[in-house]
């Protein structure tokens, strides 16, 4: 009996050793399941076969063999579990490896659009002035001589008309507006002070088109009328505009000028954004860049719309959007704006 017991124990040891050796060679979860069935299967597993021998053993040997079988079983189960985990880890690793992408390929992006630099500049200017309480209005682009000229103190046969060569629809009566200023009159006729508006829009001049002249371009008009406003307010407002638009350290300079619908009138310069005033090609070595024309609303214009110039004061200004955009974005040619070349438009 002892020999039989020893032989059984030895067989179990051998079984364990063989099973563990085989286990080590297994490389897939499928083989692992086969191994599991072969050794630990509840019905035909080799270890099960030993268990069936137990009833045939003597009382003393039974627990010895039983314990041994359990020990082998625990050993194999734990080894199986370890191996299974290893294989699972490896398979996941391999699966992840197979799914590796070239993350440097371009993304499946939706195409991005761009706002035209003129629209963008108008929006920027409008935002600055709306922060100062101005409202944005627009007006007709085909205008009457009255609104474009006469009401603005530019009578028929006035030499100031030379400053703005005109496209006529009905000569002397209907024209393409040469400035956004006609909206000064339309707005003041429609409301009573206080008035704070800016007017962006297209304007037209009968000019041969070249690198610095366009037959169609854009202006932004500003108008403020109330019982308090002074030219110092005009300077303060435009200084604030210049700082917001062109940088915190910008300085503005007022100098005398002439516009038929303002008195006094002023040309407004900023110190050169490129050379900061020391002189360069952009500013023609003057250190200053002209950005807009302005002044106090002419008493004749106020009277024209029924405002009493002894009671109300106002300021007005007008700037060329193309000019502002050219300075802001360092664009050298005005024709680019109407050229609509995508290589240009995509930069904004």
């Amino acid at each position: 009996m002892i020999e039989q017991l020893d032989a059984l124990l030895a067989q179990l040891d051998a079984l364990q050793e063989r099973a563990l050796r085989e286990l080590e060679a297994i490389n897939s979860l499928a083989e692992l399941e086969d191994w599991d069935v072969r050794y630990l299967g509840r019905h035909r597993g080799e270890l099960k076969n030993f268990s069936t021998l137990i009833p045939k053993l003597g009382k003393a040997e039974r627990p010895v063999i039983g314990q041994k079988i359990n020990a082998v079983k625990e050993k194999l189960e734990s080894a199986l579990e370890t191996r299974r985990q290893e294989l699972r880890d490896r398979e996941l690793r391999e699966a992840l490896e197979r799914e590796r992408l070239d993350v440097t390929l371009p993304g499946r992006a939706l195409p991005a659009g761009h706002m035209h630099p003129i629209s963008r500049t108008i929006l920027e200017v409008a935002r600055i002035f709306t922060r100062m309480g101005f409202q944005v209005v627009q007006g007709p682009e085909v205008e009457t001589d009255y609104y474009n000229f006469q009401a603005l103190n530019i009578p028929v046969d006035h030499p100031a008309r030379d400053m703005q060569d005109t496209f006529w629809v009905v000569p002397g009566e209907i024209l393409l507006r040469t400035q956004t200023s006609p909206m000064q009159i339309r707005v003041m006729q429609a409301t009573r002070p206080p008035v704070r508006v800016i007017v962006p829009g297209k304007v037209f001049r009968h000019e041969a088109i070249d690198a610095s002249h366009e037959a169609m371009f854009h202006q932004i008009e500003g108008l403020l009328v109330d019982e308090r406003c002074t030219m110092a307010d005009l300077k303060g407002s435009l200084a604030r505009f210049a700082r917001e638009m062109f940088g915190e350290d910008r300085r503005v300079r007022f100098r005398g000028s002439y516009f038929p619908f303002t008195e006094p009138s002023a040309e407004v310069d900023i110190d050169c954004i490129l050379c900061k005033g020391s002189g360069c090609r952009l500013c023609k070595y003057s250190g200053w860049l002209e950005i807009l024309g302005s002044g106090m609303v002419h008493p004749r214009v106020l009277r024209e719309v029924g405002y009493d110039p002894r009671k109300y004061r106002g300021y007005a200004f007008g700037m060329g959007v193309e000019r502002i955009a050219m300075l802001k974005y360092a664009i050298g040619e005005i024709r680019l704006f109407s050229g609509n070349d995508l290589r240009f438009l995509r930069q904004f």
Partner: peptide, 23 residues
């Protein structure tokens, strides 16, 4: 003109005009 001070308009703000085409 360089003697002009720079101040901020202090007058009252106008009523909204109700033209929304710009926006």
């Amino acid at each position: 003109y360089d003697q002009l001070p720079a101040t901020v308009p202090e007058g009252p703000l106008p009523e909204p005009h109700g033209d929304h085409w710009f926006e």
